[in-house]
Simulated assay, not measured.
Amino acid sequence: MASPRRFTILCATYNQADYLEEMLSSALAQDFEDFEVVVVDDGSTDATPEVLQRVLAQAPADVRERVVVERTANGGQTAAYERGFALSSGEYVCLLDSDDRFHPGKLRELDRVTREDPGAGMVMHPLCVIGPTGAPTGIVRPQGAAMTNGDARAQMRRNARHVAPGASGLVFRRDVMAQMFPAPTKGFPFAADAYLSFGAACLAPVRALSTPLADYRMQPGGQYLRRMLSPEGLRRQLEFQEVVAGHFGLGEAARRNSLFARNRYASAMYEGTGRRRLREFRDLEVAVLTDPFFSPRQKALLGGFWLTTLVAGPRRFPALWEWFQRRQTGWHRIAAQAERSGATQ
């Protein structure tokens, strides 16, 4: 049996053939050698198998030896992560979304940080947002709130609140990740990384870096925005929140989580009664005002915005909610860049 690696780069992919070569090339271009790449193809119906085969066939033999590819029946991102973890050997597992890319020095920096701080069960870093073609947008995520840093376990018990980047900014110590499988989120086709980062913050201290070490691609095929802008999608998001918080015994604390409260309020504005809208608005305002990750200025701006949406009422809420979502994800800037690009062609 091969010796364990220092790092595993784990990618769960589904129908992202257009970006796989760029993703895999960025993983294999690391300037640190003690790592492996595990790719789980979650039953893709596009050209994913052919692309992976072609990229690996062109790679040198010593590079191919570091890569494990397995194709499974479609079971969702959580199941793909579980399978990939079982195939991996790394002391630390770095998630990499199939349309994202790592910066070349990422693993070397992570090696330094994890040796300096071996008690951290999860290491996180910001992500540079790129557009569909890979062009930089100038956005770094997370945008508003500061990332969780240090031992947040007492805080998680108080309000189930943590702030983390997307999947490609998450790195888990192996023993911490092992505690989160089998996961309760197999019924959801999205946000497996959100479950993992939430759980890691409950189980061990975390370390947040200030330097972006990967690129996060925003593309029209992304599901987050579509989900958040529909009543059905919001209901599914609320179910996910309840399952994750309940799994760690934080159902009551989750009522004080400002992100969760925001989604509950949006759902109520889409399809709730007047009484429910007022109740969720009050909970949201309290959660925002007591959120330790927001500055006083951010709290004032957010509180004022949510009051504006309540006064505007359910008929105008969808447009305001979409404006908010596009700004907090960065889609407004990507759309503006695309407009400018089209105008100059």
Rank of each mutant, 00 (worst) to 15 (best):
S3L: 14
P4F: 06
R5C: 13
C11E: 11
Y14Q: 04
Q16V: 12
Q16S: 13
D18L: 13
S25L: 10
S25F: 11
Q30E: 02
D31A: 08
D34H: 11
V39M: 11
Q53C: 10
R54K: 13
R54D: 11
A57E: 14
Q58A: 15
R64F: 10
R66V: 12
T72Y: 06
N74W: 07
T78M: 09
A86G: 00
L87R: 04
S89K: 10
G90R: 03
L96N: 01
D99W: 06
R101P: 02
P104I: 14
G105R: 11
R112P: 14
P132A: 09
P132C: 05
P132K: 07
V140M: 07
G144Y: 15
G150E: 04
N159W: 00
V171G: 00
F181G: 03
A183E: 00
P184Y: 07
K186T: 15
A192T: 04
A194T: 10
A194M: 08
G199I: 08
L203I: 15
P205R: 08
T211H: 12
P212I: 15
L213Y: 12
R217E: 13
M218V: 07
G221C: 14
R227W: 10
S230K: 06
P231D: 04
Q237E: 04
Q237L: 06
L238H: 02
E239A: 04
Q241S: 01
E242T: 06
R264T: 08
R264I: 10
Y265L: 09
G274I: 08
G274N: 06
R275A: 15
R275I: 13
R277H: 01
V288K: 03
T290R: 14
R297Q: 14
R297N: 12
K299Q: 10
F305Y: 15
W306Y: 15
L310H: 11
A312C: 09
P318S: 04
L320Y: 05
W331I: 03
A338V: 07
G342P: 01
T344M: 08
Q345T: 12
Q345W: 10
